[in-house]
Amino acid sequence: MLELRLVQGSLLKKVLESIKDLVNDANFDFSSSGFSLQSMDSSHVALVALLLKSEGFEHYRCDRNTSMGMNLGNMSKMLKCAGNDDIITIKGDDGSDTVTFMFESPTQDKIADFEMKLMDIDSEHLGIPEAEYHAIVKMPSAEFARICKDLASIGDTVVISVTKEGVKFSTRGDIGTANIVLRQNTTVDKPEDATVIEMNEPVSMTFALRYMNSFTKATPLSNTVTISMSPDLPVVVEYKIAEMGYVRFYLAPKMEE
């Protein structure tokens, strides 16, 4: 028996919108502490890791660990039918081949049930090692989205370099080059507007902008984004979900041949 009631249902809608274009289908792993998902995109260049802890739910019941394979496009279609203010409940029964999404309007005058077919997914689970990163940049998520979008109009790849001067995003394409430098800036009115650069060692890595732009679909989930880099490790682009968990995107670097 599985029953999860999320008062802020829009969060789940936003989570789906942020990952559904990257990953077609994935296993949702439910346990008593919350639910998680880990999946690579079809080309194995990017990986998404989602965690939503049980504390963030108004009601959370999961009698035993269970994994449900869902097509994210289909799940997104169903969640789009929920209003932004709706309470969303996910329900499942042991051994069933369906999952039910229940949407309740805030005034309880409209209640909808959507039952979705589950699927068997052969997914490989990867161990993500704990790492000490050379550099961690925390910045406003909207600024990061703007930079990725702007650079993608010039080139296909971005070089992200962190030095003690700041963080530099560079690209080059047929029409020319672009460099955007952000300096650490903590003298802001609101903490979420700050750019904070933690650098142990300088680092410079190259990534495909197409993927970075896909990750920025998670911007509505969080005012800030954290970018963690070490040479010879995938970059981690993390959007924290307040009080509940995170969506983390890992992107393999482009490397010199």
Binding site: M40, V45, E124, L126, A252, K254
Partner: peptide
């Protein structure tokens, strides 16, 4: 030029 690496180059199956 540079070549796109994959996640599985860095993280192992568990």
């Amino acid at each position: 030029g540079s070549k796109q690496s994959t996640i599985t180059k860095f993280f192992n199956k568990v």
